[in-house]
Design a protein around this nucleic acid. Sequence first.
RNA 1: GGCCCCGUAGCUCAACUGGAUAGAGCAGCUGACUUCUAAUCAGCAGGUUGCACGUUCGAGUCGUGCCGGGGUCACCA
Length: 613
Amino acid sequence: MNFLKDISQQVSQSLKEKFACDVAASEVLINHTKPEFEGTYTVVLFPFVKRTKSNPQVLGEAIGTDLVNQTASIENFNIVKGFLNLSFTNEFWLNQLGKTVAGEYQDVNVGQGEKVLVEFSSPNTNKPLHLGHIRNILLGWSTANILEKTGYSVVRTQIVNDRGVAICKSMLSWKLFGNGETPESSGMKSDFLVGKYYVEFDKQLKVEYTTWQATDEAEQVFKEKAKPDTTSEDFFKGFKNHYFNDHSDLGRQVKDMLLKWEDDDEEVKALWSMMNGWVYDGFEVTYQKLGVGFDQSYYESDTYLTGKSMVEAGEEAGLFYKKEDGSIWVDLEPQGLDQKILLRSDGTSVYLTQDLGTADIRYQDHTAKKMIYVVGDEQNYHFKVLFEIMKKLDKPYAEGLYHLSYGMVDLPTGKMKSREGTVVDADVLIKEVIGEARSGAEERGDMGGLTADEQEGTIRDIGLGALKYFILKVNPQKRIVFDPKESVDMQGQTGPYIQNAYVRIKSIFRKSEEELSQDFAGYVCQDVERQLVNQLIQYPTVLEQAAAHYDPSLVAHYSYDLAKGFHRFYHDLRILGAESPEAKSFRLNLSKQIADTLESSLNLLGINLPQRM
RNA sequence: GGCCCCGUAGCUCAACUGGAUAGAGCAGCUGACUUCUAAUCAGCAGGUUGCACGUUCGAGUCGUGCCGGGGUCACCA
């Protein structure tokens, strides 16, 4: 919005000429005028009071007079306390709409083609995607869209955690208890089938553990390791991991499998490929339902070895150190962090190791110096560590790494826990939300001459629109409390509300037979209309901010405000039945721009706009 | 315990990064469909911004200290 810069410039000049005070144009603060006052933009005068040794009233009079005289678009000013409120001419607003129509407010190119890699979703392959993934995926997807829109060259990627103990649990469990069950034979969605065996493993382990607790061996362990005042019940609650590692038969078998996997054992690898394949098929279905996809997927199984050699190289270069038992560590205490292990004493890699390798391979593939990791905030510390290590290794992309951290999604009953079966599966939720949209549509009846297929598509867009908006409108840093039973609202500040504004506009244009022309010269616009034009020209600024902060919620709030403005306008004024040809032309153009902007902004959030609803 | 995040209306969220009398939606109560789609609009009611100091013309926003919630400090991922 260049005219704001011009105003700042003018203010700076006035201060210089009339008060001999040097204030850079960039220091001039211009706000939106509060609705209860006359005007559209406001210059805050307080900061100049001290520097000019003048009072706000005098300052305001001087600056305001200059602005009105020097700037054709400013019609009037008033001063309230230390605020200089500026009103713009009718001509100005007509011009602004004209510029918008001409596409002048379309280009945002802060990225200038710079490459950015956005990692999101990043699932494990032992169970289906759940509500938490949905937030992750929506955030990642829309952040990528926003970056693309603002001129970055974006690569969308996921890292699939396809190896390790978890998937081996599913594999072993299937082998022991599965009787050769397949997605075909069971009719289950394939990722759910794998998840089923993961849960089954846990169940069996629990049984095994409980039985073991009654043995002499367990009693011995309790006597040796329990602190004086703990009951055996409490002790064994905390001992579960140790049991799995040191005493469990199932645990032994899982580890055995993991070792065989690392040894490239044919049978184990075949099982692994098969079951991972099931999971990928299932994920793909879910991704498609959500309308997202990736330019490239990375697999931990392909990258962990690279990480390992990076660690070894770093150790040789003296950046890391080796303990007597052979494990390799990094000392990040100078950076205010801790000592972290990078390779286990048996030479196998840990979580960090893989992330090092993944980052490096990605850089080799894409030479993107910016990489954004969309990962939950429980891993804040992990990423701090990772980024520090990259700096230590002096990687060219080290400074461009960013952890887009977001809060967990909780249920009204508390945290989601897979062990307690309180996890909300992504597919189940999507179905529920679409069902909600369907019953809403049925209640309303009449979707105006759509075929059955089109209706189904619209219902899906509405349901998903509600879900996506609900999640994306919240600032990523905050935790979300999500009640899947009450599902998602379709009224008020919601996706469907915004979709509805768009649909109303589309409906108008369906009824308007003439070509859209710009014959609105001389039209005197009303307050609502000025406000709407003003909202429209904010769009590029909003995009810039959303891109700078990696925050889709800014776009979400903007589109709601715009839709709200439109609904009100629609209610107050006739468009097709406007009082004059100019008024009609102005309003049609305005509506068209609003529809385009709503479509653009909602698409950034991954929300589709139906033509009717 | 150390470090990190969060705390705003009954509920879900805003507040242009320090600016005016803290705004929306939901839920509750009123009113508006023979009018371009009522998934809409208008109104009422709802607040000591967790608490206390401090910084300054000005603090929900910055600082310090408490209180409450969450996370994290693994040879788990």
